[in-house]
Design a protein around this nucleic acid. Sequence first.
RNA 1: GGAGAGGUACCGAAGUGGCCAUAACGGGCUCGAUUCGAAAUCGAGUAGAGGAUGAUGAGUCCUCACGUGGGUUCGAAUCCCACCCUCUCCGCCA
Length: 424
Amino acid sequence: MLDIQLIRSHPDRVRGAIAAKKAKADVDAVLAADEKWRHATTEAQKLQAESNAANRDMGRLMKENRAEGEKLKVRLKELSDRRKALEDEAKALEGERDRLVLDLPNIPQDDVPVGPEETHNRVVKEGGAKPAFGFKPQAHWDLGPKLGVVDFDRAAKISGSGFVLFTGLGARLQRALVAWFIDVHTREHGYTEVYPPVLVLRDTMVGTGQLPKFEEEMYKLKDDPLYLIPTAEVPVTNIYRDEILPAEKLPLLHCAFSLCFRREAGAAGKDTRGMIRVHQFDKVEMVKWTRPEESEAEHEKLTANAEVLLNRLGLPWRRVLIATAGMGFSNQKQYDLEVHAAGVDRWIEVSSCSNFGEFQARRAGIRFRDTDGKLRYVHTLNGSGLALPRIVVGILENFQQADGSVVIPEVLRPYMGVDRLTAV
RNA sequence: GGAGAGGUACCGAAGUGGCCAUAACGGGCUCGAUUCGAAAUCGAGUAGAGGAUGAUGAGUCCUCACGUGGGUUCGAAUCCCACCCUCUCCGCCA
């Protein structure tokens, strides 16, 4: 959520952000609603002050001069009715303004390229090397079933399209990746592990910016006011909702494994084959709370924390600085990490590392007390480290051999107990 | 799910219709005094959110804030209703 003070004083910056992000939102409607709200509020407060002053004498008056008291009471009743009417009006106007403000996207940082996604995204870093094959590499949807590690047909039988059933060593590979990711983040990168609920209240979704904008993307329960999370970012960032964090604890770092659920309503028909786009997947997420002046540096570190994993797995990857139009609603800067998958011969997104500035903290009410004694909003950041099953796609497709087997990356072997997946 | 108790500041806690909310009282924390230093003691500080005015500064004024949301009343922490959370007991359950 943007600061209403900022919207009032720099509406052009907000207009610029809306245009750059190709968002649908109306600054002028916000300003108009705000103006009306302030007027009504001021009037209501004047009446309240008048009424408070009069009521202070009322008790005494009722004892000393009952008749005078009754007369005043009649007058105050009328005052009170007027005040209540004005308060109701102010409240309605405030609600309207806040609804409109919630639809305003975050303002991109100055170093973010402006423009539509395809042409203006910038590859800023690359790592690993694409493997050389003496044969035509297979796509994971052919390779996986042959190796007995995934079963797409039975997954569809159980849950419909867009789900994966991992079997045997495939299931173990998922578990191995999650365990290894978390071990690296907790042992080497300073993150404290948490394991959050995957069903959350509406307020929690609003806190991180998934709602009210993206209702269509979320799974919602029918009989309870709960949503299935699209990412651990949602419950984890909200751990400290409406709290004041001790300044000396910043930056605060958590990582979490969770299931993620996405309806993919806007992407129907896209990536229908295989397990690149599925309704339920596993992900390890890194989340940070920082002082405002530290968030840019922490964003770089967080992104590097994810890249370490890709390097050690030996996958070919690149870091993409996402241009304004491709950015998330709540982001002020976003890097995506992509892995090249040899079988399908394309770059697939396996991580998105974002700096939200104070946008989420303001919505969620997460603050800290600065050295001058003032309360300030923290900056929040998060990034996948990393997302499954796309990493499994990368492993299967890039490490496949001429005989149809797949070599397990060195770092995962202690978790897997085998060094190779072979056809069944 | 049923019965009961409770939710006031960093913590404990008083207040049961107006003189009680920058919130009694006790504790914690910060700073200062005292001390060679510390303990003890003494003193000061320890709440936010919003509006008006000012320059988005300082200052001043006002409003809101007693779990949340409504209601009654001239006036609500206090009375009424609904909901949320915590604790105890019972039931159920992995």
